[in-house]
């Protein structure tokens, strides 16, 4: 403090070498640095530097896309923590959920994950509702709407595959009801119309052991193979696909000129 000018603790921290090495920009307190912060920060660079006022008005946007993304992050974090306590086998799945409730500290982990998942399904619908009602799928945003529809589908599949994992009555029967449909897939399901078309030398290609439902469940009925299959889909395949599509979805929002309206 040789200069005699008193520095606040915040200034000292922000002037330190460590701080400057982490954040590539000064504190966003003036106009110039509020622009710079958006351009130089990895987490913020998703955003533009400035937006139309209506593009951030809650009564217009409902914030549902953002909420959905946030819920996806909540599901990822709580999901990873849940994976520490859960083994997808007939022997352990149900017991692990029981002990998660009764023994584990932070006892609301599963609640956060489940309610977050329900909320995410609802917020995806509301997001889509808003995008439709404001005509935000119109050119040049057509393809981003298509990606959005796929993301909607992935959200439902994420929830559906997760539904099985507690391995209680609620889980297996909901999945049984849901996956029984696949049995009736035209041509590819063994009770589907046209399954007789796929025969080779008089032998049915499509049986209960080789049809679409079998492919989904990994077995003739919901069993341990299904549990394993849904676990992998739920924890790895679908989240990765969704994250990949989300990246494109957000990038396209930027490139197509904001969330809605003419360019």
């Amino acid at each position: 403090m040789a200069s005699g000018e008193k520095q606040s603790l915040g200034d000292v921290i922000r002037d330190s070498q460590i701080w400057k090495s982490i954040f590539r920009h000064p504190a966003p307190v003036d106009r110039r640095n509020r622009v710079v912060v958006m351009l130089t920060n990895f987490f913020l660079h998703l955003h533009p530097v400035s937006v139309k006022k209506q593009g951030i008005a809650l009564s217009y946007t409902w914030c549902m896309g953002g909420v959905t993304f946030f819920l996806f992050l909540v599901e990822t974090v709580t999901g990873v923590l849940l994976m520490f306590y859960y083994r997808p086998t007939l022997e352990w799945a149900y017991n692990d959920i029981l002990s998660l409730r009764d023994v584990t500290s932070l006892g609301i982990l599963r609640e956060l994950h489940r309610w977050g998942a329900h909320a995410m399904v609802i917020t995806v619908w509301l997001h889509m509702y808003r995008v439709f009602l404001t005509g935000s799928y119109k050119p040049p945003r057509e393809f981003n709407w298509v990606i959005g529809v796929i993301l909607l589908l992935l959200t439902l599949l994420l929830s559906f595959t997760g539904y099985l994992l507690p391995w209680d009555q609620l889980a297996i029967w909901a999945i049984t009801v849901g996956s029984n449909m696949a049995r009736a897939t035209p041509i590819l399901g063994y009770e589907g119309p046209g399954q007789q078309l796929l025969t080779l030398g008089g032998i049915d290609m499509i049986t209960s052991g080789s049809d679409a439902r079998f492919g989904l469940l990994g077995a003739r009925f919901v069993g341990e193979e299904t549990l394993n299959r849904f676990y992998v889909l739920h924890c790895i395949a679908i989240p990765l696909s969704a994250a990949f599509l989300m990246a494109i979805h957000f990038w396209r929002v930027r490139k197509d000129g904001g969330i809605s309206g003419p360019l």
Binding site: P28, R31, R34, V35, V37, M38, L44, H47, P48, V49, S50, V51, K52, K53, Q54, G55, I56, A57, L58, Y60, C63, G66, T134, G261
Partner: peptide, 19 residues
């Protein structure tokens, strides 16, 4: 209503704080 809000504002602080 939406046309009235067509002037631009900075994302920091208006949007990031809302988020």
């Amino acid at each position: 209503l939406e046309h009235e809000g067509s002037e631009k504002v900075l994302v920091w602080p208006d949007l990031v704080y809302t988020e």
